[in-house]
């Protein structure tokens, strides 16, 4: 499609709560290309966690409230392969046979994953202003297999003259996040993420970038737990930082500690008292 005047932005829950800077950067990147961005404040979640847990009615109710937020015939840009995949490929399944199936299909047809949008629609041209840096890229399974856009992040990084991409072995293998999977099968998930961390560390990259906050939270969290973490960043934040004059130099401490946000750890007690939802834990009979 040709370059639109305006797009919708769907921020996703993880970016909303944990990586908002990635959302801000994504919007700044789009705006810099002369495209207006609308962020419907009533957006919540794409419904994927419930969908992947088998709770289809519950997922549909949420999805239904979301599709109503994007009435104009303009692209919907999502900084996550997984949430974009939910809307693009699973909304049609979720709404099949429903009275609002047509509306869901129409919305699904306008969904773009961020890197896909930057490359395929905006044909963005990036000028690297940063110091030389070596990065490892983790491409999410959803952007690879569901959206088929895993190579766009590489295309973007290849435009940055001072960025050297390093390739970890078994790059296409899942990091073990899998949404509910990390909760329901913590042992397998742990073994997957630890191996993923090993392969990424072995590249000796200065930084890890990716297009999905879930994977980054998983891999980054595991590295932080081990100590001496390779700083991780969402691709939007990384691109903005590299190409924006006002960007800060590469910090020596993990990025999530340098950025201007102050963070509150979501510890077990807090999570419990906050949610009051114990039932989400898999309890085997």
């Amino acid at each position: 499609m040709s370059k639109p005047d305006t797009v919708y932005f769907f921020g996703t829950c993880l970016i909303d709560l944990i990586y908002p800077q990635a959302g801000v950067s994504a919007i700044q990147l789009i705006q810099r290309e002369g495209v207006q961005v609308i962020f419907p404040q009533a957006q919540t979640c794409c419904g994927q966690p419930a969908w992947n847990s088998g709770y289809r009615d519950e997922a549909r109710a949420v999805a239904r409230s979301q599709i109503a937020l994007f009435p104009k015939p303009i692209p919907i840009v999502i900084p996550s392969g997984s949430c974009a995949g939910m809307m693009k490929t699973h909304y049609p399944e979720l709404f099949a046979g429903q009275p609002d199936e047509a509306q869901a299909l129409e919305v699904a047809g306008r969904v773009y994953e961020l890197t896909e949008f930057l490359v395929d629609v905006l044909h963005i041209e990036l000028k690297d202003l940063g110091e030389p840096v070596k990065v490892a890229v983790h491409t999410s399974c959803s952007s690879r297999r569901e959206m088929g856009v895993a190579d766009r992040i590489e295309t973007l990084l290849d435009q940055l003259a001072n960025v050297t991409k390093l390739e970890q072995i078994r790059k296409a293998e899942c990091c073990g996040f899998g949404g509910t999977f990390a909760v329901k099968q913590p042992e397998i998930s742990a073994s997957m993420v630890l191996e993923k961390v090993d392969t990424i560390r072995a590249t000796q990259a200065d930084r890890l970038v990716g297009q999905d906050a879930g994977c980054l939270m998983n891999i980054g969290g595991a590295m932080e737990k081990q100590g001496a973490a390779i700083p991780h960043q969402h691709i939007a934040e990384f691109l903005w930082e590299r190409t924006n004059m006002a960007s800060t130099p590469l910090p020596s401490t993990p990025l999530r500690n340098h950025s201007h946000r102050t963070e509150r750890p979501l510890n077990e007690a807090a999570a419990r008292s906050l949610s009051g939802v114990e039932g989400n834990k898999e309890t085997a009979q």
């Binding site: 921020g11 990390a182 969290g221 979501l266 077990e268 834990k281």
Partner: peptide, 30 residues
């Protein structure tokens, strides 16, 4: 936050924090 991230974050955080640091909430949401 925990309700909003239902299904993606364990209510029993130890399943997560055995091998990962706890996710940190940004001061301001997007």
């Amino acid at each position: 936050a925990a309700t909003r991230l239902q299904g993606m974050l364990p209510t029993n955080m130890s399943a997560w924090t055995n091998v990962r640091s706890a996710p940190k909430l940004a001061e301001k949401t997007l």
